[in-house]
Design a protein around this nucleic acid. Structure first.
Lengths: 232, 232, 232, 232
DNA sequence: TATGAATGAGACTTCATTCAT
DNA sequence: TATGAATGAAGTCTCATTCAT
């Protein structure tokens, strides 16, 4: 099973592939289009059925493409999944990449929460694929988690700790704060079925997410800042 | 696909089966033992590989039992899964069943968070099976969610709203509070792989969970109570 | 596959078993009763589903008996089937055993047709099991066919030929006459589904069989006797 | 279990499929060839072992084809069987479709018997598959029997009755005449094992069938025409 | 680039049979 | 005599993958 190529996780910024066996990007126009179509389709299917439950036929159908043709672009189910995960990782990491220690924690953390929630709203399938991978013990992506993501988090934690030293935030564990933010923001994508069942309505609309955002930020920021009101 | 029998979800308290096709409980000694062995094994395997990825061979191995014998107790993979889900639902619901409006919200919600975290610590596999089911859109358990669980939550939300009217808690949406509690507490089981990768240590030990508990409660209670300190 | 023990087909008249592996009869009261129950049940089930389609569970259910207990009486499915076939053979052969050359062919053949049709009416399942066995190429019963039944038919054919020499019947092949009688009389049991579909009514009642009898005898006897009317 | 689509049994003449789930005919060369190979092989195997006794492995072997490839053409054993039955039905019905009331009954019925016997000689496996289906109670083909075949027979019966009114044939039940013809002609295919055992020779050769034909026609025509000699 | 045809591995499930009581 | 529990063999069917065009 091709796992993450931990050795050069930094390749992220260069756009190179970080998961072994992921197809190199070539530059024919139609190829790029088809690759995108396939990845989009695969993300949906993997989200709905999990790695094992998804079939290449389903992906092919969703991508309007024959199964052999699909395998022309990604030479195995495994590789396709790896590429999907990789793309999701990019989305996942993006907002985490720039916490500015010189700005106010309210703003920075608030913006981060906003972005994560926005991602959950816009790419719920991606979040669910990620969730599945984590729940299964991250069999594929663990190497990246343990290197690149770990380092990134360490830096962010340092930023938060700096804010704490400066008295700008409450004295809480930066890691657990991050975990809570992730948990809460992704929950709205991953557990959509549960939430929709509770509320009796679909999560599709923006208004719901705005309400969620308000509440989530309100609670998290209170706790985070150690103050009553995230705005004051 | 046997789905939840929503019609008599109230059967919960009586211990009756709520998922169609779930095997009736008979009372032979060896049967009870074997059923437990199988359910335990199946929970582990479903947690690690998901419904589709799990094979009856794996479950059989984990339960030290031949595959046909396993099917002697649960007549299909599907029924086995349904029974596993049902048992998890019981665990899941247990702590939610008694929020006492006459007691203080700190105590009640605090205890709820404690219990949920304790469940995540003790039964992480159960949580992960649940997570998988939700992520996949709750294909099996949705009927229960939409009836029994929904009603239960409505009652709890009412309790929280009562506290709010009495000025005991901040003015936040009771539902989103519940969602956040769920998200956060289960995260420590469902995303254990991610957390462990970040922290570089295993979540098995009690100390880690105590630290998580402290932080989670601190943040949530701040936000929830609208005050700086969950204890004051 | 236990086949017919051709060596001592004559054992028929002694009531001994002629199919290898068929259980010896012992003489406990309850045993005899259970054996009959099982054979009756098995005949029905084999008739409806064929040898391969029938399951011991079905036979057990039909005989109100657990599967292992059933196997206590007949130690394998094969043996059970062999015993069923053997019992059917007795029924099958019975009317053929006494064509009296000194009596009139009308009477003798007429009586034979009557008896065969009566058998079809009373024991259609037996006929269908037999039909299945023949259609499949008589894998089990062929040895008996080729010895005992063949000899028996040879004798009957001789009788018919004697009648022909005496000018009592038309000059037709005795064998083909026998084949036709078998074909026609058994057809009402074996192809009941087809006949019932054509006529839109069930064959259960005696009246239908009487009508069939009249027509069948009318046609066969005409042809057989070379005369217009089976009664003259 | 896909059953016959009784609603449009008339589709017969158009060559459309009449059994639900039977594969649509596409028109690739290799597909047609393979479908024929499979149907031929399946007919043989179903004839020898019955629906339940036949295995896809056997069919695959007989068709020189891997089992999964076989399922590429017919997506289940059931569908394959349905298609086999459908094809047999066509053969079965063919000679029944044109009894000409304006011609002599000797000629028409005689020709019908000839054709049926010829079918038994040429396609004995088809006849045996049909026999098995009937013996089992026609679980699959009953809907067609009860509609299309029933109507067809009604018309033929009317023709025969017309002949009777015109004094051209004896006063016998047209239905029972048809049943007898079917019974007798198919017997030579379905009970070949029994007949061969009696005669000690194989039915393969044409001479035997000619003898059978002579006798069968002799007897049936005598009875049918109410005269001594089918030719006068 | 695209796809119809083909297949080996492996999944779930059934079932005759055995074991133990 | 009777039956709950257990299993190996085998059957149907799925699916990732390859072949050939």
């Amino acid at each position: 099973m091709p796992k993450i190529d931990a050795s050069n996780a930094a390749a992220l910024t260069t756009g190179e592939t970080r998961i072994k066996g992921a197809h190199k990007r070539t530059h024919s126009r139609i190829q790029d289009i088809n690759r995108q179509k396939i990845l989009d389709a695969a993300t949906k299917v993997f989200a709905d059925y999990g790695y094992h439950g998804a079939t290449l036929d389903q992906v092919g159908d969703a991508a309007n493409m024959s199964k052999p043709n699909l395998l022309y672009y990604y030479s195995s189910k495994e590789e396709l999944y790896a590429t999907v995960l990789e793309r999701i990782l990019d989305i996942w990491l993006l907002p985490l990449k720039d916490l500015d220690v010189t700005k106010s924690p309210e703003h920075e953390i608030g913006a981060y929460i906003d972005e994560k929630l926005e991602h959950s709203r816009l790419y719920p399938e991606a979040s669910r694929v990620w969730s599945n991978e984590m729940t299964a013990g991250a069999p594929k992506i663990k190497p990246i988690l343990e290197t690149y993501l770990k380092d990134l988090c360490k830096k962010r934690a340092r930023t938060i700790r700096t804010w704490a030293r400066e008295g700008k935030v409450a004295d809480i564990s930066p890691y657990h704060l991050l975990f809570m933010i992730w948990a809460v923001t992704q929950h709205y994508a991953d557990f959509a079925a549960q939430i929709e069942s509770m509320l009796g309505k679909s999560l599709d609309d923006k208004r719901f997410f705005n309400e969620a955002k308000k509440n989530v930020k309100n609670i998290l920021m209170h706790g985070f800042l150690g103050r009553t009101d995230g705005k004051s």
